[in-house]
Simulated scan of single mutants.
Amino acid sequence: MTRTLGIMTEGNDVEALYRRLAWRRQIVLLTGLAALAFSLVLDVATGPAMLPVPAVARSILGLAQDRTVDAIVWSIRLPIAFLALAVGAALGLSGGIMQTILNNPLASSYTLGVSAGAGFGAALVIVLGVAIPLPEAWAIPAMAFLFSGIACAGVYGIGSLRGSSPEMLVLGGIALLFLFQALLALLQFVASPEALQQIVFWLFGSLQKATWPKLWIISAVLAVSLPLLLLDAWRLTALKLGDERARGLGVDVARLRIRSFAIISALTGVAVAFVGTIGFVGLVAPHIARMLVGEDQRGLLPASALFGALLLSLSSIASKTLLPGAVVPIGIVTSLIGVPFFVWLVIRSRRAFW
C-alpha cells in the first residue's frame, strides 16, 4: 500500500512539473509575441525620416489619417520590417532543427556551409551570368536557393559515408563550408570591380530590396515547414537522447534526418536568397529558446522561430540607427550583436552547451 501511494505521489509530482513547464512555455511565447509586435512597430517607425510610433501603429491597423505616412509605411517600410521577421524566423527555426538532429550546440546553416553554398550560387550568377531563363533579380535568389540545397545534400552525403553519425555530418558541413568559401574567394578574385562590389554587398546581407512577393514566398515556406516539423516533434525530442535510444523508441533516425535536412535547405535557401548571408541568428536564437522553454520540441521549434524573428527585427532597427543618415548592412549588425551575446550565453549558462 505504501509503495502504491509512493508511486501515485511521484506521478502527481511529475504531472505538476509538466503543467508548470507547459504554463511557462505559453508565457514565454506570449511575451515573445508581444515583444515582436512592439519591435515591428518600432522598426517601421525608424528610418531616415522618423515617424511617430502612434501614427505607425494606426497605419498598420488601417486607421491612418495621414496619406503620406500611410504611403511610407505600406510601400517602403512595412515590407522591410515583415521581411526581417520572416527571414529571422526561418533562420532561427533552421538553426534549432540543425542543432537537434546533429546534437551539436554550434550547428547552424551559417557555421556548417549551407549559407556559404547559397552565397557561392549568388556570386556565380553575378560573375559568370549563368544562363537561367529568369531576370537577374530572380536568377540570383534562384541559384542561391539551388546551391543551399546542394550544400545540404553534400553535408548528408559526406556524413552518410560513415553511417550518418552526428559527428560525421558536422565534419562534412565544416568541409563544405571551407570548400564554398574557397570557391567564392576564387570568383571574387576573377570578378570585375563592378561585380566584386555587388558580391560584397550581397554577402553583407541587406533587407532594403524587400518586396511583398519575396515576403509571400518566405512566409509560404515557413507556413509549410513549421507544421511538418511539429508532426515530428516527439521524434526530434527523442533524438536528443541519442541515436540508439531514439531507434529503441521506434524512430527511423535516417529518414528523420533526411526530412529535416530537406526543410533546413528550404528555409535557409529562401532566407539567404532574398537578403544575402546573415550569420548568428540561427546560432543564437535556438539557445535563447532552449534556455527559456527547454528541450521539448513542441515549444523549442516555435520559440526558435520567434526569437530568430525578434533578433533580426532588433538588428534591423539597429542597422538604421548606428550611423545617422545611412543603413548599415544587416549582416554586419547581426555579427556585432551575435558574437558578444553568444559568448555571454556560453559563460553565463551551462545549458548553452548541453
Rank of each mutant, 00 (worst) to 15 (best):
Trp202Gln: 09
Ala175Pro: 00
Leu91Cys: 05
Val284Cys: 05
Ser108Ile: 09
Glu10Leu: 15
Gly159Gln: 04
Pro302Tyr: 02
Ser59Asn: 06
Pro324Asp: 12
Ala238Gly: 03
Ala144Met: 01
Leu21Thr: 08
Ala266Glu: 10
Leu301Ser: 02
Ser260Val: 02
Ser115Leu: 11
Ser192His: 00
Thr4Gly: 03
Gly95Gln: 01
Ala153Met: 14
Leu83Trp: 00
Phe353Met: 15
Ser315Leu: 06
Ala89Met: 06
Val251Ser: 13
Gln181Glu: 15
Val281Trp: 07
Phe342Ala: 13
Gly92His: 08
Gly32Met: 02
Arg67Val: 15
Asp70Lys: 00
Ala84Thr: 01
Phe145Cys: 08
Leu300Ala: 11
Ala22Tyr: 05
Val125Asp: 13
Pro193Arg: 08
Asn103Phe: 06
Ala84Ile: 05
Ile217Met: 13
Ile140Gly: 03
Ile97Gly: 03
Val44Gln: 12
Gly47Phe: 05
Pro213Phe: 01
Val253Pro: 06
Ala86Tyr: 04
Ser319His: 00
Ala16Val: 10
Arg162Gly: 12
Ser160Cys: 12
Pro54Ala: 10
Val221Phe: 06
Pro133Phe: 08
Pro324Val: 13
Thr334Leu: 07
Val343Glu: 10
Val73Asn: 09
Val251Tyr: 06
Ser164Lys: 00
Ile199Asn: 06
Gly294Leu: 05
Ser265Ile: 07
Gly88Pro: 02
Ile317Asn: 05
Leu36Glu: 07
Leu61Arg: 02
Ala326Arg: 11
Phe120Glu: 11
Ala55Thr: 00
Gln99Asp: 08
Leu345Asp: 09
Ile278Arg: 01
Pro133His: 09
Leu336Cys: 05
Ala144Cys: 01
Val328Ala: 09
Ile80Lys: 04
Leu215Met: 07
Gly299Thr: 02
Thr334Phe: 06
Ile288Lys: 01
Val221Glu: 11
Ala289Ile: 01
Arg290Thr: 03
Ala49Trp: 01
Met1Thr: 04
Val53Met: 04
Ala107Pro: 02
Arg24Ser: 13
Leu196Gln: 10
Ala34Asp: 04
Gly88Tyr: 04
Val73Ile: 12
Asp252Tyr: 03
Ala131Lys: 11
Leu231Glu: 11
Leu51Cys: 02
Ile140Cys: 04
Ile76Ala: 08
Ile332Val: 14
Asn103Ala: 15
Ala233Ser: 13
Leu312Glu: 11
Thr211Pro: 01
Ile347Tyr: 00
Gly159Leu: 10
Gly129Val: 03
Glu136Ser: 09
Ile158Thr: 00
Glu167Gly: 14
Ala16Ile: 12
Ile347Met: 08
Leu283Phe: 07
Arg235Phe: 02
Phe307Gly: 12
Leu124Met: 14
Glu194Ile: 10
Ala210Glu: 12
